[in-house]
Design a binder for these strands. Structure first.
Lengths: 207, 207
DNA sequence: AAACACCCTATGATCGATCATCTGATGTCT
DNA sequence: AGACATCAGATGATCGATCATAGGGTGTTT
């Protein structure tokens, strides 16, 4: 309900007053409260007892943190079970389609669906719900709007992943993690992420 | 607030009627609702719209799923940054102490604190909050009571981990993951978990 | 007797009002 | 003037009451 409102209506730092929203939406305070709780769970707002909620000031660090966790979860997923390639190809087809018609929203949607398929594969409900609780789709939209963020994952970037899944490449976990972190902010610069990735990779993998 | 009540008072399958709890606790329906929401987020109860909430029937599969995710998160943590060994040793000391005095609750508490320290190390707030959202402490208590579950992690099991952290062992991620999954149910049997772990480990790490 | 429609109860969802707390403004004392 | 106490307004937390829905029971029809 409120998610839509986030997408342009309010900016970082804005206060979200329960009564105000209630009046505005023509409902009571209670449902607004619940909705705010959900937004808080997604990490989109921050609130403290008796002091109300406000839109978080997103930083690139926030986004990087989400991506690091996401990468870890997806790597865990493929380690448990490789995803069904056929389903992935369906999502990829839609992604290409969306890219061809310049539909940004659909690009994000199908890009996310591709990765969700990966996380769903092991049949671990906890894993899936934790991954979903990260709110990847919302964060993706935010990163596109707030930072200059590479205009959405390129459909082509996913092809090597599918190929790796298909041949059961043992390094698929690494590929996937780098694929994800590659879209993280700071990834381009020779910053923390890149170094940490390379280092931990080299170490725990190759030694 | 309600967490305490879970610990013995109600059993799996019991319905949690909002008004009933409210009357019982001498509060209104609203705070009870919020508390139920939290329990739901922890995966301890399940609820459907207009149909109320009930205590989940925990299975060993549930527990295993939680442990798999937990293992993935903690491995992600140590990959980002190794935890401060000094702090870990403090927790271990308390753990030994609790074991010596047969304080089951303290054993669980300090065992969890040990692992929380690991997850806290990278300074990634998202990672920490996601890990905390798994409710490890509650699950541990539940597993002890509901399944015969090895009577809590043995303090000694943690020593090799600390040693590995101390010398910056590149395989620390693997050690940690196996340490965690070792406490997962089904771990003893030559089941899915063991096989999957061994396979993915050998491959993506050593090849 | 089986199938269906209706009603009744229990209970979750929502409401409007009240209570409690935080914040900033105002006033007073040194 | 600066520091502290007091107060009022805004607003989150909680309350008691009402609305709406799900499930079960009952009666009617065939």
């Amino acid at each position: 309900m409120l998610d839509g409102l986030i997408d342009g209506r309010w900016g970082p730092g804005d206060r979200l007053v329960e009564r105000g929203l209630a009046a505005e939406l023509g409902v009571s305070q209670a449902p607004v409260r619940e909705a705010l709780r959900e937004l808080e769970a997604l990490g989109l707002i921050e609130s403290s007892p008796n002091r109300g909620a406000r839109i978080r000031r997103f930083t690139e660090t926030d986004l990087r943190e989400v991506y690091e966790v996401r990468a870890g979860l997806e790597e865990t997923a493929v380690r448990l079970r490789l995803p069904p390639v056929a389903a992935l190809r369906v999502h990829l087809a839609r992604l290409h389609e969306a890219a061809a018609t310049d539909s940004l929203i659909d690009q994000v949607r199908h890009g996310v669906a591709f990765h969700r398929e990966i996380v769903k594969a092991p049949g671990n409900d906890v894993l899936l719900s934790v991954w979903e609780s990260l709110g990847i789709e919302v964060w993706t939209h935010l990163s596109i709007r707030l930072f200059r963020a590479r205009a959405v994952e390129n459909a082509a970037d996913h092809e090597p992943l599918v190929a790796a899944f298909e041949r059961g490449d043992p390094h698929v976990g690494v590929l996937l993690r780098e694929h994800i972190l590659g879209y993280s902010p700071l990834a381009g610069r020779e910053g923390v992420t890149a170094i940490a990735t390379a280092a931990s990779e080299g170490r725990s993998s190759l030694e």
